[in-house]
């Protein structure tokens, strides 16, 4: 890649701390939404089921069940329109993409919680 383009790509990256969440984490994404000239914060909460790409183009997918219907939303990891990302808890998962959750309903669609070692 051209060094000038690479420098542009590094420009607005978020810190490691802000982007260090894992697959299977139960997260609350606070995203800014513009409505009729006003800005407000909307929270989208659910499991992170995938992370795709690297660098400034990296995205993650959050899946939640809303009114009985599965909803997935893809967010850019380094988007300035993500105000905050809270990790509620992590899960014990064995794969990088949790697409199998799409076929699961009810109690089966839960993930086993991972107890993190105390630092």
């Amino acid at each position: 890649m051209n060094p000038v383009v690479a420098k542009l790509n590094r420009e607005n990256l978020k810190s490691e701390k802000e982007t260090s969440f894992d697959i299977g984490d139960n997260v609350r994404v606070h995203c800014k939404i513009k409505e009729g000239g006003k800005e407000r914060i909307q929270i989208f909460a659910g499991y992170v089921i995938a992370r795709d790409g690297v660098g400034n183009t990296e995205t993650f997918t959050v899946r939640r069940i809303s009114h009985g219907v599965g909803v997935e939303k893809v967010f850019p990891v380094h988007s300035p329109f993500i105000e905050k990302l809270e990790v509620q808890n992590s899960s014990y998962v064995r794969r990088a993409k949790l697409y199998f959750l799409r076929d699961r309903k009810g109690k089966k669609s839960r993930l086993r919680e991972r107890i993190k070692a105390r630092k």
């Binding site: 890649m1 051209n2 000038v4 383009v5 542009l8 790509n9 607005n12 800014k32 513009k34 400034n56 183009t57 850019p76 988007s79 300035p80 329109f81």
Partner: peptide, 21 residues
Amino acid sequence: KLGMTQIFDKDGARIAVTVVE
């Protein structure tokens, strides 16, 4: 032409751009 990348516009949408020196 230096290459392509993506940036965020004012509404938070990602747009693909070509970088030209």
